[in-house]
């Protein structure tokens, strides 16, 4: 495109970044301010910093447990949905399955359900139907991983389909001709080529699972509670502990931020991948 001096762009982006970052900055301000000072004339500049909320959050073993659950559930769910989604997309792309467009659309509709009303049936299914003797899926990590599939699997399929479609079919055909098994074709030919797309899917499904609140709040009690449900403990009739909530939020940002910056490069690459092929 046109060669111009880059500085207007930099200026523009500094401005946009300011707008993007301001609420996050404000989250930080909340986390280091006593609540009664939040209820006074606000000031953009931080007056003084009080780390008490952070020390409390760090010193709280329950929250560490929640953090662990969040990490395991969202990672497990991201891997599961991406894998299943990848298989499904491959099947939709390479096989002539009857009604596959209908199946494709039908899988997507799973994401459209308003969550509040599905909590009751999910609760009943998890406690009464999907059980082996005394073991039920309620309040287990595996249960949450499976439940999150309802909104993440459609997303994974929606995202991965163009990527898989974008891998030239000739490549697998050639492999078949060489006598490779279908399984080998998937894992050794198609999979490596899809890697950027898979990375994007992995990361976004991870983020969706990491951020989910309503389902986790209802379907976990003690063992599988996630950080977002931990937050709700601080909204009470005797006062909302904004500071603690904000401090926890800052903590929830950290793992997400690390994961995001590491794969940032892949995201755009992954998104771009399929399109470039076309």
């Amino acid at each position: 495109m046109k060669k111009k001096t880059p500085w207007p762009y930099v200026f523009f982006w500094v401005l946009i970044s300011f707008l993007t970052l301001f609420p996050i900055y404000w989250l930080f301000v909340i986390s280091v301010t006593p609540s009664f000072e939040l209820f006074s004339t606000p000031s953009v500049i931080l007056q003084h910093v009080d780390w008490q909320n952070y020390t409390e959050v760090i010193g709280n073993p329950t929250l560490r447990g929640y953090m662990m659950n969040s990490l395991l559930i969202s990672s497990g769910n991201a891997i599961l949905t991406t894998t299943f989604g990848f298989f499904a997309c491959y099947a939709l792309s390479r096989f002539n399955l009857s009604g596959k467009e209908s199946i494709f659309f039908w899988t997507i509709t799973n994401r459209m359900a308003p969550p509040a009303v599905f909590l009751l049936p999910l609760f009943l299914l998890l406690t009464k139907v999907y059980r082996i003797e005394g073991f039920t899926l309620l309040d287990t990590r595996i249960g949450m991983i499976l439940v999150y599939c309802t909104f993440n699997l459609p997303f994974a399929i929606w995202t991965l389909r163009p990527t898989v479609d974008g891998i030239p079919k000739e490549l697998d055909e050639a492999a078949f001709v060489d006598g490779a098994s279908p399984w080998k074709v998937i894992t050794e030919v198609v999979f490596p080529l899809c890697r950027p797309g898979l990375a994007v899917t992995l990361i976004l499904t991870w983020v969706f699972a990491w951020n989910e609140y309503l389902l986790a709040a209802t379907l976990t009690n003690f063992n599988a509670r996630t950080l977002t449900t931990g937050l709700s403990e601080y909204v009470t009739t005797t006062g909302t502990a904004w500071g603690i909530m904000a401090a926890i939020s800052i903590f929830t940002l950290i793992p997400a931020l690390i994961v995001f910056s590491v794969v940032q490069r892949h995201i755009v690459a992954g998104l771009t991948f399929g399109a470039v092929k076309g």
Binding site: P23, I24, W26, N211, Y213, A256
Partner: peptide
């Protein structure tokens, strides 16, 4: 800048609501 721009995505909706409420 691109990394900064993606930051809001990784904040849980319930927290987004809290931030904006206080703002």
């Amino acid at each position: 800048f691109r990394t900064i721009h993606t930051l809001p995505l990784i904040i849980a909706p319930i927290i987004v609501g809290s931030i904006w409420k206080l703002m």
